[in-house]
Amino acid sequence: MLEGKFEEASLLKKIVEAMKDCVSSCNFNCTENGISVQAVDNSRVLLISLLIEKDTFEEYRCDRNITLGIGLGSFSKIIGNGANSDYLTIQAEDDADTLGIIFEDKVKDKISEYNLKLLDIDADLLEVDAMETDATITLPSADFAKICKDMKTLSESLQITVTKDSAKFQSAGEIGSGSVVIKPKTDIDHPEESITISLDKPIDLSFGSKYLSDIIKATSLSQKVTIKLTEDSPGVFEYKLPSGYLRFYLAPKFDE
C-alpha cells in the first residue's frame, strides 16, 4: 500500500503542471524511499527525471514497490480541484487500478476524495548515467525563464556560451538578434538572487527554444535553477524540491 501526504497540494500541482505539456502520461515508481519518474517526450529530445524523496511528505509509507501509470492531463484536472493550501494525500493499494486523491481543508471541516483511473504504460527508459559536467550555472529561475521567453521571440534556437566569468545567452533570427550576459554575483541579503558560474571548459551549445519553453514551466517550483552543460552533450536543467528534484535533460542542436 502507498500513502503519501503532502503538506500543501500546491507542490504536487506545480510538479504536474511542469511535466504535463512535455509528456502526456508516465509511470510513477513508488518505493519506501519516495517517488520517482523518468519520462521522455515524443520527439525524444527532452527527458524529465523527477525525484520526490520521502522527506518531502508530511507522512509517507510504501510497503511494496508500486508503479502507477498516470495520465498527467487527467491527474492535473483532479488535483486542480483542491485548494493550494489543502493537505493532499495520494493513496493506492498494491495492484490497484485507481489512485485515490484526498484533499483536506485545513480550516473548514471538509474532505474531498477523488479516484483517478490508472493506465498501463509500457515505457522504454533511457540509461542516464552520471555525466561529467564542463560548466555549471546557478541563477534565479525567474531570470532564466525571462531570458528563454525573450530569446524565443527572435529564434527557435538559444545559444549558450560560458566562459570563466560570464554566461551569454543569445539568439539570432529573421527580425534581428539579441543577447543577455550574466556574471557571478553574491547577494548576501537576498541569497536567492545570487548567480554562480563554475567552469572546467568553455561551453558553446545551442538548444531548441520550444523545449526550453517547456522546461521553464517548472519555474514556480524553485527560486533557483542549476544548468549543467557539457560540450556536445545534453544540457541538464535542475529545479530543486524541498527534498528531491525535477530535472530536465535536453538534447542540443548541432550545425548541419
Binding site: 527527458l47 522504454d124 527508459l125 533511457l126 540509461e127 542542436k253
Partner: peptide
C-alpha cells in the same frame, strides 16, 4: 541552421 539531436544519440536504452 542547426539540426536538433535526439537523446537516444547520447543515452542507451535500458
Amino acid at each position: 541552421s542547426k539540426k536538433q539531436s535526439s537523446l537516444t544519440q547520447f543515452f542507451g536504452k535500458t
